[in-house]
Design a protein around this nucleic acid. Structure first.
Lengths: 150, 150
DNA sequence: AATAAATACATGTACATACATCTAAAATAT
DNA sequence: ATATTTTAGATGTATGTACATGTATTTATT
């Protein structure tokens, strides 16, 4: 859907302002697709992201600060997201031994399993909905990074 | 900041997957700038957006459904956002007369005033932080819309 | 060693999202 | 005219964001 249709407006102050709205709308569109896909696994977009981050170091555990440095939304409250993953027994948490201020999290076997299933579903759904050639994606990445240079 | 630095990772499955993460991160970056700018006006990004939508029809009022059709995040709970704007006396609400199911909102003079000040601050802050030529912005808009075609 | 500063993270609050359910009113069907 | 369906939006709950503050622990200072 065109942005103009999506937000019922075609009055933009500049191409850059339209691009800003377009990015915000596209981010919502992406989150919506992923949340729909993840719902059957009782996972939210953010919880899935934390599981993926933990997978990146698995079988090594990670402290909360390291997880936080890898999440996309930098104001995420990681302790609360991990609370919910602990409640579902997908991660295990304990106090750090070297530094006892740290809280150490690691994937459980059940966590690994749900992550594998969810990732498979995500790839199928993203592969279907997100039609973008490698060349276009590269160009998009370059423009986004140029935008944030300011 | 490059995406790789921002999320401490350079392991992307494809350019398209990187683009998806890049859009989510850039959306957070944009919301962060706007929230910082709007804070001195006691406005959030979403409240500001609703004020702007109302301005588009002002001095005509709008019903909740029409506002909802214009917001960027399509799962926004518009009645609750307008609740807060009413509490700050920036919009006035009443029941519709032609269709009594509708709730009609309109900007108050104080709402118009805060919106004008906030818009000025937003333009200054966006103008400074968002360096993107018209040609780049046009290309970005085209790529984002192509991405959502799927 | 004792004190001060910095760090890791838990916790509290206000606001927003995502989604389900409820109520009143309008539109439609019978 | 009455009953049914649809629509507008209010409301409830769980989750997440944004940000401030509190607490335990470690590091740095004196």
């Amino acid at each position: 859907m065109k942005l103009e249709e999506a937000i019922q407006s075609n009055q933009f102050k500049s191409p850059a302002q339209k691009a800003a709205l377009n990015i915000l709308y596209t981010a919502w569109w992406l989150r919506n697709i992923t949340n729909c896909t993840l719902k059957e696994f009782d996972l939210t977009h953010e919880q899935y992201n934390v599981l993926r981050i933990l997978k990146g170091k698995h079988p090594q555990p990670m402290c909360t600060k390291d997880i936080a440095s890898r999440v996309i939304e930098k104001s995420s409250n990681v302790p609360r997201i991990t609370d919910r993953l602990v409640a579902k027994k997908w991660i295990a948490r304990c106090q750090g031994t070297a530094d006892r201020r740290e809280t150490i999290s690691s994937l459980t076997p059940a966590g690994l399993e749900v992550l594998a299933k969810a990732t498979k579903a995500m790839e199928a759904s993203i592969g279907k909905r997100l039609q973008l050639s490698d060349a276009d994606a590269d160009q998009l990445n370059e423009l986004l990074e140029r935008m944030r240079e300011g």
